[in-house]
């Protein structure tokens, strides 16, 4: 391909601002001495200018208002969702802290009475801790599953 043809092929990209600086320079140098390419470039410019000045279609006022109302409602819903999540996280940590604190309390209160009734009170203490942990883990897993399901429902909506 001759230099002339190569430059000619570059002209559409030249008006789209897609040439590297070196190629831009090549094109500029070439069109100074080639009237045919200069005219061709003018035509591409005309087309590009026409595209830039095409009338912009306007969305109706009703559409904009509806969009605004729906998007604002969604924003509020998202904020509420974040708030609920924060409250749930706080309550979960609080409940865990309370449970953990109840274990030594249980041991302290029961050491006298249970100690007399049951020689193996340590096993009762371990059973209590194990049952509590199991209940919490099961509850946590259920909450996680519910949360994941709700998230997928929100995505589908």
């Amino acid at each position: 391909m001759s230099d002339h043809d190569e430059i000619r092929d570059m002209l559409p990209l030249a008006v789209a601002g897609g040439l590297a600086p070196a190629d831009e320079e090549r094109v500029a140098r070439h069109i100074r001495s080639c009237s045919s390419c200069a005219a061709e470039l003018d035509d591409w410019r005309l087309l590009a200018g026409g595209l830039r000045r095409m009338p912009t279609p306007q969305p109706s006022r009703g559409l904009v208002e509806r969009t605004r109302a729906r998007a604002e409602a969604r924003l509020a819903e998202e904020a509420e969702h974040r708030w609920h999540r924060a409250v749930m996280i706080f309550l979960t940590f609080f409940a865990w802290a309370l449970t953990l604190a109840s274990w030594p309390l249980f041991r302290l209160l029961s050491s006298g009475l249970l100690g007399m009734l049951d020689a193996n009170w340590d096993q009762a203490w371990i059973r209590f801790a194990a049952v509590t942990t199991f209940v919490w883990v099961a509850g946590g897993a259920a909450a996680l599953l519910v949360g994941l399901q709700r998230r997928s429902e929100r995505r589908m909506a």
Binding site: T56, P57, P59, L63, V64, A71, E72, L75
Partner: peptide
């Protein structure tokens, strides 16, 4: 979470986006 900002952005981009 500012609702007014959402409204301002919709106004700003409504024609271009549409």
């Amino acid at each position: 979470g500012d609702v007014d900002a959402l409204s301002a952005l919709i106004s700003r981009y409504q024609n271009r986006l549409y």
